[in-house]
Design a protein around this nucleic acid. Structure first.
Length: 585
RNA sequence: GCGCCCGUAGCUCAGCUGGAUAGAGCGUUGGCCUCCGGAGCCAAAGGUCAGAGGUUCGAAUCCUCUCGGGCGCGCCA
């Protein structure tokens, strides 16, 4: 409807231009908005206010002229000028009746569109280091990224969901070494575990697998392992301590066994992560390995391209990228003085690879603590001659958990973090998914565990699901009374729906496609969450005010058509948020 | 110190990229089941949109400054 009005207005503007009542080049963006106050009609545009200055006319006069040039449309009952020069559209009563039929006919597809025209978009999200289970901090990125991806798919983009697996680098070596040390302990060695090692129980589990597979084959006396290793904190430097242990593990084990432990740790944790995400309703098209970039030579290729373009230089034995030439605040190291490429170097290659794959748009969902990283990645793309605007980095702020009004402390070090799995088990997938996307992503999120768990009025998830279940229940009630829903008869009697609650609901469900569109294009799933709450509220109000199962068959079926459409919209909306729409609760 | 994000009702947050009288939920107070699920509904109270300037027909929204909170500024990933 909104698009239809925009078209009509465009025709009116063209008409006025051709009659020289407007400057020929006046082609403003025509904005048609829903009105906030029903007294202002259903839709309004500020077009006349925007054009007034260029046209040299008073806004209200211009508005009249535009209305005069507007093609007639049966859906519109009347058009009027209001306030300083707004043009308000009042729709004919029948205009909203057709939306009920549209919803029922389209079913699960209602709200979907082909706005994206099948253009390919990539969404990369979570991408947590596979050094341990996902915790609640990752949950928000998972819920947000998955929902943004689903929304984009709903409006017609071909979405590729990707997880970047950081399977190279020091953190993974620390993990592999941690596993080996735990293995030694299982084999009977006594040692003091490094303070910087991974201490979670899952490390013991992986070590146990190693011990089961290999027995004592890879056992070395603790004294040999720790010989000449620099002291751990607090006396010494914990970083130097763990690095020396990594080297020792490689030397004593040899390349092959070390790799076996490394890969076992990597794969078991990755499997765990994949399983967690799947249970959370989050699935990927691709798990992209960082190591593969090094092994395929892609990293070297990226560096060569930067070198050839003259953007690299040597300093203090390291190779630097002159990112400050491209908007970054300072230059960055890409190859360390020990010859190893940095994580950033891999990331340059990775993003180059993404763009080369031909996506229209590449979306990265990152934790807000990585925001300082954005300029350097964009700088690299610019230096490589790519368009950095094809990359959208969406920063997600932290979620803070509350239980009993107290902040839940999370500490990865101690291994006492709350995992995503624990959260799901405690509050359920539906509540978790919903709560995570209830807020704008750049807003800090207070996650109240007690509220998410409570099956009560103040829990928005249950509130919305309850509306859905209530409608299903009405349908059951209908059958119990020996009646059935006649959709055709309902469709023929939609004109009987003239209660304010009814027109309100029809307006609401007609808005749904616009909400999905906005939520998708602006990457703001919270808009959909809020919309669904409002829709549920309108339904509950209607439910309390009017009886659906009335004697008169025409009215009864018309109302059933309406609430069936509401149920459909709630189900579609919750589906996009990864939340179930149960028939009974 | 520099950079990014945030500041709206007692609390948690919306506010549709500059529109008309700033809205919800929770909490508080008072009402509503012989009726389709009370996990619901209705009503009331509650605001200097952190503060000060500016831009214009019009600002919670855009610009500048100040104050307050979060995060980031590695040859870590």
């Amino acid at each position: 409807m909104r698009h239809k009005l925009q078209q009509r207005l465009q025709e009116a503007v063209d008409e006025l231009c051709s009659r020289s009542l407007l400057p020929a080049d006046s082609q403003p963006e025509i904005k048609v908005e829903r009105t906030r106050d029903p007294a202002h009609g259903d839709f309004a545009t500020n077009l006349a206010l925007v054009l007034a200055k260029a046209a040299g006319q008073r806004p209200r006069d211009l508005a009249e002229a535009i209305i005069g040039a507007l093609p007639a449309t049966p859906d519109i009952e009347r058009v009027e000028v209001a306030g300083p020069g707004f043009i308000n559209f009042h729709l004919a009563p029948g205009a909203y009746h057709q939306v009920v039929e549209q919803v029922l006919t389209a079913g699960d597809d209602y709200g979907r569109s082909d706005l994206g025209g099948g253009r390919p978009v990539q969404v990369e999200f979570v991408s947590a280091n596979p050094t341990g289970p996902l915790h609640v901090g990752h949950g928000r990125g998972a819920a947000y990224g998955a929902t943004v991806a689903d929304l984009l798919a709903a409006v017609g983009y071909r979405v590729h969901r990707e997880y970047y697996v950081n399977d190279a680098g020091r953190q993974m070596d620390i993990l592999a070494t941690s596993v080996w040390l735990r293995y030694l302990e299982l084999a009977g060695e006594t040692l003091s575990f490094p303070s910087n090692g991974y201490q979670g129980d899952y490390v013991w589990d992986i070590a146990a697998t190693v011990h089961r597979n290999r027995g004592d084959a890879w056992r070395h006396p603790a004294a040999e392992v720790f010989a000449d290793i620099p002291a751990d904190a607090p006396e010494g430097d914990k970083e130097a301590h763990i690095d020396a242990l990594i080297d020792r593990a490689r030397t004593l084990l040899g390349a092959e066994p070390y790799r076996e432990i490394f890969d076992l740790a990597l794969n078991s944790i990755l499997a765990n992560i994949r399983q967690d995400l799947h249970a959370f309703g989050v699935d990927y098209d691709e798990w992209f390995s960082e190591r593969s970039l090094t092994e395929s030579g892609a990293v070297q290729q990226a560096l060569d391209r930067l070198q050839a373009a003259g953007h690299l230089y040597e300093k203090n034995g390291a190779l630097w990228f002159r990112s400050s030439d491209f908007g970054d605040e300072k230059d960055r190291v890409v190859v360390r003085d020990n010859g190893q490429t940095t994580y950033f170097a891999s990331d340059i290659a990775y993003h180059m690879n993404k763009l080369e794959r031909g996506y229209d748009r590449v979306i990265d969902v990152w934790g807000a603590d990585h925001h300082g990283y954005v300029p350097r990645v964009k700088a690299a793309l610019r230096a490589l001659g790519d368009d950095p605007d094809r990359l959208d980095v969406l920063l997600v702020q932290f979620a803070i958990l509350y239980r009993g009004g107290e902040r839940v402390q999370m500490s990865t070090r101690s291994g006492e973090f709350v995992t995503l799995r624990e959260l799901r088990q405690e509050v359920g997938r539906d509540a978790a998914r919903f709560f995570y996307v209830m807020r704008k992503c750049e807003q800090h999120l207070d996650f109240d565990l007690d509220l998410a768990k409570s099956q009560s009025a103040d829990n928005p998830v249950y509130y919305i699901q309850y509306a859905h279940a209530r409608i299903a229940s009405v349908m059951n009630q209908l059958a119990e009374r020996g009646l059935s829903w006649d959709r055709a008869e309902g469709a023929a009697h939609l004109h009987l729906l003239h209660e304010s609650h009814e027109t309100g609901l029809m307006v609401a469900i007609s808005r749904y496609p616009e909400v999905v569109e906005a939520a998708a294009l602006l990457h703001e799933p919270h808009q959909l969450a809020h919309y669904l709450r409002e829709l549920a509220n309108q339904f509950h109000t209607y439910y309390n005010a009017h009886q659906f199962l009335v004697e008169e068959a025409g009215l009864r079926n018309a109302r059933l058509n309406l609430i069936a459409a509401v149920r459909q919209v709630i189900a579609n909306g919750l589906g996009l948020l990864g939340v179930s729409a149960p028939d009974s609760m």
